[in-house]
């Protein structure tokens, strides 16, 4: 049991270490490490996990780690994999936060950070398009999108928009 836990932790530590660019970036890695490398999962199973991870709350990386860990070694496995996948990212972003706290007043750092603002907007634009491609383009989706737009324009809280869209999904799909 503890052997499986250790191996799980190690595998997801690796996944956390090398997956830049958000949760979806780790998918090919999980495929290589856990399916091809260790045979812990089948490709079909992994496809199902991704589908579950998408429609449950939270980052896809955390969802995937919890699910794979749980399948292999129960709640302890889920916890070990989740902690492991977050360990390196937390360390790196913690160091970034610390460096920013120390050097945030240097003109070059301020300039570099201001230079990042347009990139973040471009990232959000790209993310919008990526998710847009996954939407079934039909009248129901269009209606939900239109309602969401009106609600957000009227400053309705995003939580209500999400809850309302989920309710409409249950009714319409």
């Amino acid at each position: 049991m503890s052997g499986v836990l250790g191996e799980l932790a190690f595998a997801f530590l690796l996944v956390g270490l090398v997956s830049f660019g958000g949760g979806y970036a780790m998918i090919p890695l999980v495929e290589r490490e856990l399916i091809a490398g260790r045979g812990w999962l089948t490709t079909e199973m992994f496809g199902e996990i991704i589908a579950v991870a998408e429609m449950t709350p939270g980052p896809v990386a955390v969802n995937t780690a919890t699910f794979v860990g749980h399948r292999l070694a129960g709640v302890a496995g889920g916890a070990a994999a989740t902690l492991a996948v977050l360990a390196v990212p937390a360390l790196v972003s913690g160091s970034l936060a610390l460096a920013l706290g120390r050097c945030g007043q240097i003109p070059q750092v301020i300039a570099a950070l201001r230079g990042l603002r347009p990139v973040a907007c471009a990232m959000l634009g790209a993310a919008t398009l990526t998710i847009f491609r996954a939407v079934d383009l039909d009248i129901r989706s269009a209606a939900i999108a239109a309602l969401a737009a009106v609600a957000l324009y009227r400053r309705v809280h995003p939580l209500w928009v999400i809850a309302g869209a989920a309710g409409l999904g249950l009714l319409l799909f």
Binding site: V135, I144, A145
Partner: peptide, 12 residues
């Protein structure tokens, strides 16, 4: 439910 949430998330 997620099929309904997805278009809303795009708008969000």
């Amino acid at each position: 439910a997620f099929a309904g949430v997805r278009p809303a998330v795009v708008v969000l």
